[in-house]
Amino acid sequence: MSAPTAPPSPALSGSSPPEPANRTTRRTPKWRRQGRAAHVFLIPWLLGLVLITAVPLLASLYLAFTDYNLLDPPTWTGLENFRRMGEDPRFWASAWVTLKYVLVSVPLQLAFALGLAIVLDRGIKGLALYRSVYYLPSLLGASVAIAILWRQLFGHDGLINSGLALLGIEGESWLQNPSTALSTLVVLNVWTFGSPMIIFLAGLRQIPEELYEAARVDGAGRWRQFLSITVPMLTPIIFFNLVLQTIGAFQSFTQAHIISGGRGGPLDSTLFYTLYLYQQGFVSFNMGYASAMAWALLVVIGIVTAIHFLLSKYWVFYGDN
């Protein structure tokens, strides 16, 4: 899954020594020693896998093929849940809502996060203050108070409509209109761009200063430094953010749950996939169906992630090879 080869960065190709050529010849003894060491490092993870992750994971896989209402024992129904998905219009509605959301909100949020991380990386006064202020919304992003805040902004009597009223436009509640409700959630997601911004900031700090110094010695301007050092060196972090924000967007739940009061309304226009899954599992007590939905989602996310990883060969540069 990981990308072993990446094109050498133009900036580094001159300065970094090539990989030791004798790697393969040394491989066997080193491999054996490292295997033992690796498993020592992985003890907590392996314990967690066996005790906490694997059993529930397998249980949910089993449940995906059953009818399980949480109260009575599950009964095996084979592929029935998956067949039902095919003919469930709300399932497809939720998949469509989620897809739109992923395609719009992930690039938007990452662009904001990356742009501001670069601006706030260094060189201006009051960095700490700006960063904190921009990060504030992320702290609040999952709070119950968000529902009320968002109504204050996008509601019928909210700030946006008050602004429009000054222009003589009478607006409706943006949250109650099926064609705009999802956009308010995209705005909410972009509003909380602080989290990926932090990761970008951390990534920017990881870039060795020597590279910039070397480039300056070579007479490269700031734009050229950005393109030939910052961007390639940041690609693993961009990639990380892209992969995980995509996964996160596919699983997006809390904000829609809070803002629509758990319903995904109006008219299912904010019925995210996991919100529907949750409704099925915890409101309608169809945990079997919910588990099947979860595994269907896992497969889809898995494919998307695999594609990300395949494509990453062409644009992600790792310092370790």
């Binding site: 109504r151 509601g155 019928h156 409706e172 509640s173 949250l175 109650q176 209109n177 309304g265 109006p266």
Partner: peptide
Amino acid sequence: LELSEQEGADPEWPV
């Protein structure tokens, strides 16, 4: 009220 005016199918009392 329109649903917009009461923020949904379930009117909220303070609204």
